Simulated scan of single mutants.
Amino acid sequence: MLYYLLYPLKDYFPALNVFKYITFRASMAAMTTFFFCLIFGSRIIRKLAELHVCEHVRQKQEVHALYDLHHHKQGTPTMGGILMVLSTIVATLLWGDLQNNYVLLSLLALLWLGFVGFADDYIKLKYKRSQGLSARAKLVGQLLLGVIVGVVIYLNPDLSTSIDVPFLKNVSFELGVFYIFFVILVIVGTSNAVNLTDGLDGLATGCVLMVVFSYGILTYLTGHLRFSQYLFIPYIEGVGELTVLCAAILGACMGFLWFNCYPASVFMGDVGSLALGGFIGLTAVLIKKELLLVIVGGVFVIEALSVILQVGSFKLRKKRIFKMAPLHHHFQMMGWSESKVIVRFWIISAILALFTLTTLKIR
């Protein structure tokens, strides 16, 4: 909005020329979401508490060990992800290029999965249970978005349907129409992986912060002709505008973490985790850095794999691999304090984010 209102006036006020720079608008978007969360965070948390939108911890008879660790969280406001999604939308409307198709598609994904997560959280709260939407209903919502995104990308002549392999120059696999199914896998998988990671105070928020920081840099480089040519990465015209959204989510994560850090005053809920995970997956496919998700989102991948392995092992062998899944609960069962698990996972996520950026020159 401000981009369209102020940038045309650059001929009269030369200082307004800064609005054409993505780096300036991305920085402003990050500050907008950060201060939005700080200013309105306490008010929204109080309102959620007044409406009894609070965490429902699994009962002792459901998961005895988990209840002993988390029973003190009963009654903590949840669905704080609304604050993150709302602040990101506001910042994008103010600082983003709303004529950019990549921006519009990303906003659609954020709102779509935010709505799915909202429905899931609402059912949990209404019926006072730890399970919300059925797994099938949640999956259908994610699949529909994946299909829409996959078809849009497939029909876009500016985007290829090949998968680039990290570390290897000029090595890629052309999928053709099957790329649609790959997009579905990436978006659904990433969305659920972030959702599974959101089990401790600030754990998912901090890890998402690291990932969007990395992808923010990658989107800017991918959308910049000279930088992309220098780094031998595919140049995609217009995709650099997603840097504004990545920066907005970065600022939202920092602002939300102010209240979500241990001990949390509010939880993001599925409305936040599903939306943020879906955005990360969508960004990965739009800038052709899909396989890098395994590295930069390594914490999410390991968390999801721990659940898959645990369920598979129990069904096939009637034995558990971990004391509890997802993996962060396993370390809690080993005696690690919650804050120690969180910070150590953050450290791993930060290292993986930095390593991801080195792949730009390791070829």
Rank of each mutant, 00 (worst) to 15 (best):
Y122M: 12
D121R: 01
E174D: 14
G199L: 07
L110R: 01
L107G: 09
W112Q: 07
F181I: 08
S106A: 14
V186M: 08
L139A: 13
R136K: 15
L107H: 10
F182M: 09
S172T: 13
V116C: 11
L133I: 11
K124V: 06
S162T: 13
L209T: 02
I184L: 13
N192Y: 02
V183C: 07
L143H: 00
T197I: 04
A137D: 11
T197C: 14
A135Q: 11
I153R: 08
D201L: 02
I184P: 04
T197E: 04
I180E: 01
K126R: 12
D198S: 06
N195Y: 06
L185W: 09
L145H: 00
V171Y: 13
F118Q: 01
A193T: 08
L200Y: 06
Y154S: 06
F178R: 05
N170F: 09
A193I: 10
D198K: 10
D201I: 07
L110Y: 04
L139R: 04
G117S: 05
L144A: 10
L111C: 13
S162K: 15
L196C: 05
V177N: 00
L159T: 08
S160L: 05
R136E: 12
I153P: 00
G117L: 03
Y122T: 11
V208H: 03
V165T: 08
V165M: 11
G202A: 02
L175W: 09
G141A: 07
F173H: 09
L107F: 06
T190R: 00
G202E: 02
A193P: 08
S160F: 06
L105Y: 07
N195A: 02
I163H: 10
L139K: 05
T205D: 10
N156E: 14
F167K: 08
L125P: 02
K138Q: 07
L143S: 10
R129I: 00
V188F: 12
A109W: 05
L143N: 00
F178A: 12
